[in-house]
Design a protein around this nucleic acid. Structure first.
Length: 503
RNA sequence: GAUCUGGUAGCUCAGUAGGUAGAGCAACGGCCUUUUAAGCCGUGGGCCCUGGGUUCAAGUCCCAGCCAGAUCACCA
């Protein structure tokens, strides 16, 4: 292993040794009391009142400009970078220049964690800096960081752009690409905004099982695992719908959960094997009510994260301001293809698919065919947030049949930037209808649909006790985060996206 | 899973017709010596993704594999 070290890694280990030999602990345990940050100093320092005359900050050493008895350096803490002015006679005791000549100038490497104390001033060059009176090594770095540098001509050096590197070593990505941190801060703000909104309405945040004896609530292939003590097969959840509805049966008026879900399917820049949804169920409401809630909530999320309802997303400016456009699925298909499919049977739909060059197979039922037409011909064209309502019953085995339109369920999706961001319905609470829907799913499964739902007797039992009319909602948090942060890939909004093993 | 593109120094990338491996930044040494250096001079650093093949000779051409990205398919 030791002979695999690069020249720079060997030098850092030698520096580490010299530090230890000088009696300095390169990894001290004691708390380093910090009293401000780079950002705070930049925002609040006033050269006239001379505040910040006794500061202590800590972070990584990111730049050294070594001169004679006085040098400059840059320290990067969690909020940003600030310049340090370090003069030998200020940090060294009389007659012993080791702290400056050796520790600072030679043994400290870029990337080392240091703590400094001193006072804030503005240099002749006009740069707010800390005049250091005390410097302490807090943690030695043994691997060189690719520190981004912009030279006098504005050329950027060393920017880490290789996605493989960035995703596998996110810790490095975060240190050297500050905008990455912003993305994840926004993602958390998004969660906080939604929590605040839903808690304000009195809904309860809950937790339900991730390991489930039966998977349900969505059409997807699951991950399968095994519990040794129980000696039983368990599945990682693909959705939490069925558990949250059980809680509505149990008497809660509104419950929601941010749930990590797992689907054993293909990966792409829109799909990670584990992803996050928020699901919300509210008793005595229907899907029309839920549409209003989604508009209100997502508009608030946009404002809370970006300060505006309008966001730049790729080439488009997307405006989440209420109200959003609403179209039924048939209307959308008519609008984008000119074909009215509202009264077609399975064979006619098959012909339409052929006409539109959409590949079909025999496992596809009527609902799937309609969904294909919409997905191929309409979805990617919907850039501004748009509600698509009234889906075919075959595609929605957990949604309530439409109160007046036969063959249709009370369901909507919100489409934005050409992708679904949420899915919601008036929840099916008729236990006899629900059993029949499960049975037709089993039929689809026999026709070869390996994503068809399985029958969940315990869920049916809960419905038989009675579930109030309920509106349910699922929002793909990663997809929403991609839009909110203008990220082209799901991997940009997940700290540690799934990767093949290295080497 | 399919197709295309890529993998060369710590990082970002060049590498011509197949002829001993290059730059910038980073590193090391020196200059400079007290509010700037984003500077100047010099030095070191490579399993050219892996394994086969063609050739007198392969980073370069061919085949296979691994990893990544993009597009497509399935899905949120």
């Amino acid at each position: 292993m030791i002979n695999m070290l690069s020249e720079q890694e060997i030098i850092r280990r030698e520096n580490l040794k010299k530090i230890e030999e000088a009696g300095i602990n390169p990894y001290p345990a004691d708390t380093y009391l910090v009293n401000t940050t780079a950002k705070e100093i930049f925002e609040n320092f006033n050269p006239e009142t001379k505040n910040y005359q006794d500061v202590a900050v800590a972070g990584r050493l990111m730049m050294k400009r070594i001169m004679g008895k006085a040098s400059f350096a840059e320290l990067q803490d969690s909020t940003g970078r600030i310049q340090l002015y370090i003069s030998r006679d200020d940090i060294c005791p009389e007659g012993n220049d080791m702290l400056y000549n050796d520790l600072f100038k030679k043994w400290m490497d870029l990337g080392d964690f240091i703590g400094v104390k001193g006072y804030v001033f503005v240099t002749k060059m006009g740069e707010t800096s800390i005049h250091v009176s005390e410097i302490k090594l807090l943690s030695k770095s043994l691997k060189p960081l690719p520190i981004v540098k912009v030279d006098a001509e504005g050329q950027v050096h060393d920017a880490v752009t290789d996605p493989d590197f960035r995703y596998r070593q996110r810790y490095v990505d975060l240190v050297v690409n500050p905008e990455v941190k912003d993305t994840f801060v926004k993602r958390t703000r998004m969660y906080n905004s939604i929590r605040e909104f839903l808690n304000g309405k009195g809904y309860l945040e809950v937790e339900t099982p991730i390991l489930q004896p039966l998977y349900g609530g969505a059409a997807a292939r699951p991950f399968k695992t095994h519990h040794n003590t129980l000696d039983m097969t368990l599945y990682l959840r693909i959705a939490n719908e069925l558990y949250l509805k059980r809680l509505i049966v149990g008497g809660f008026d509104g419950v929601y959960e941010f749930s990590k879900d797992f689907r054993n399917e293909g990966m792409s820049r829109f799909h990670n094997p584990e992803f996050t949804q928020i699901e919300l169920y509210v008793a005595y409401k229907d899907y029309n009510w839920m549409m209003d809630l989604v508009e209100e909530m997502v508009e608030k999320v946009a404002i809370d994260t970006n300060g505006s309802t309008k966001l730049q997303v790729g080439e488009h400016i997307i405006d989440f301001k209420r109200p959003w456009k609403r179209l039924t699925m048939f209307e959308a298909i008519l609008e984008y293809t000119g074909i009215d499919i509202s009264s077609m049977d399975e064979n006619e739909l098959r012909d339409v698919c052929r006409q539109l060059h959409i590949s079909v197979d025999l496992s596809m039922g009527k609902g799937k065919l309609i969904d294909e037409i919409f997905g191929e011909q309409c979805e990617h064209l919907l850039i501004q947030p748009t509600f698509i309502t009234d889906y075919p019953v075959e595609m929605s085995p957990l949604a309530k049949k439409h109160r007046s339109k036969p063959g249709i369920v009370e369901r909507f999706e919100a489409i934005c930037n050409g992708k679904e961001i949420c899915n919601a319905f008036s929840e099916l609470n008729d236990p006899i209808d629900q059993r029949e829907r499960f049975m037709s799913q089993l039929e689809l499964g026999k026709r070869g649909d390996d994503e068809a739902m399985v029958l969940d007797e315990d869920f049916l039992r809960s419905l038989e006790y009675g579930m109030p009319p309920t509106a349910g909602l699922g929002i793909g948090m990663d997809r929403l985060a991609m839009i909110i942060t203008n990220s082209p890939s799901i991997q940009d909004v997940i700290f540690f996206p799934q990767m093949k093993k290295e080497g």
